[in-house]
Amino acid sequence: MRPAMSIPKKIHLSMPLAIAALAVWLGLTVGGRWLESVGRAPLGTTVTGGIGLSWALAAVFALALLLASSRRRAAGLCAPPLKTLWLVWPPLLYALLMLLLAWAGGWPQPRVLLIVACNAALVAISEELMFRAILLQGMLDRYAVWPAVLMSSALFGLAHTANGLATGDVSGALWQAIAATLQGVGYAAIRLRTRSVWPMVFVHGLWDYALVTATLPHPAEDGASILPYVALLAVLPLCLYGVYLLRPSQRAAITLSDAAA
């Protein structure tokens, strides 16, 4: 009599696993970008030079890990309830306004716009799956809502300091890291309130697209980008919006919905 085949168990998204996944993700993104650019290169060159294979690999890795997880719905790998979509409108309209301002002085070449759009989408998918799905859920497995949000957002900001290794603009990368930390608070709050990572994938991609295309007509001559400084000012309202969404009356509902998932 043949033994019954055992069904493979799903992966539990614990905090140690999330941290290990982050290390692999950083290796794919930072290491891959360094190899693609053969050393240091300005951010504009990296984003407009071609489709980023490293970002695509990192996105595939994060998605594969979530699909193998036992709590992929709790991590946000599902469609958001329609009644929560109104929460996305403020940052979405903000991103659209930034896009209009970015193109007010003229449009870049269509080929460049297409490449930037593809890379912005890959970065948004990769980063949201890693930080707002895997890492945030791993933190929630051990900590309450606010500690989990703050730690995942801080690591999101810290990961952006790696841009200094790829571009040589260490000062700019530091400012970008601060901006990314504030941005992470807003994005994590919306992810938790909508119970889905996909709305912020769309907003994140549109946001990056607007910021990058805004700098394309006037790139910095020395390779340093004004993008981090612009981003820092732009994300302050988003961070405050996230703080509002995670007010005490809403955190209890988030905890209950996470436990039910």
Rank of each mutant, 00 (worst) to 15 (best):
S126G: 06
A18V: 03
C78Y: 00
G184P: 12
M98W: 15
A231D: 05
Q250N: 15
A21Y: 01
S54F: 04
T29L: 03
N163Q: 12
I254H: 01
D222R: 02
F156N: 01
A58E: 02
A144S: 15
A231N: 01
P3L: 14
M130L: 08
R111C: 07
L53R: 11
P3Q: 13
L22N: 00
T48L: 09
G50C: 05
R72Y: 01
L101C: 14
M98P: 03
V235G: 01
L206E: 06
R251P: 08
T161M: 15
I51L: 14
L17W: 11
Q176E: 12
L129Q: 01
L57R: 03
L43I: 14
V47A: 12
A74P: 02
L113V: 07
A41S: 14
S171V: 15
Q250W: 05
A58G: 09
L97R: 05
L100W: 11
Q250R: 14
T46C: 06
L174R: 10
A74I: 02
P248T: 05
V145S: 08
W198M: 04
S70E: 03
I134K: 02
Q250T: 09
L227Q: 07
L114T: 09
Q109E: 11
K10L: 15
R132K: 04
L135S: 01
V243K: 03
A159S: 14
A173E: 11
A177S: 15
P42V: 08
E127D: 10
C118H: 00
A166C: 13
T213H: 00
G105A: 13
A234V: 05
V88D: 10
L211F: 11
M98F: 13
N163K: 00
G44C: 00
L43S: 13
W34V: 15
H218A: 13
L236C: 10
L216H: 07
V185T: 04
T46L: 13
I178R: 04
W107K: 00
L140W: 06
L165F: 13
V88S: 13
L63H: 01
Y229C: 04
D169F: 09
A162F: 13
L246V: 12
A117R: 00
H218S: 14
A148V: 04
A231T: 03
L165P: 09
L150S: 07
Y187P: 11
V60D: 02
T194A: 12
P217W: 06
G157L: 08
M200F: 08
D222Q: 05
L233H: 04
L92P: 14
A117G: 10
A59K: 00
L136I: 02
A74R: 06
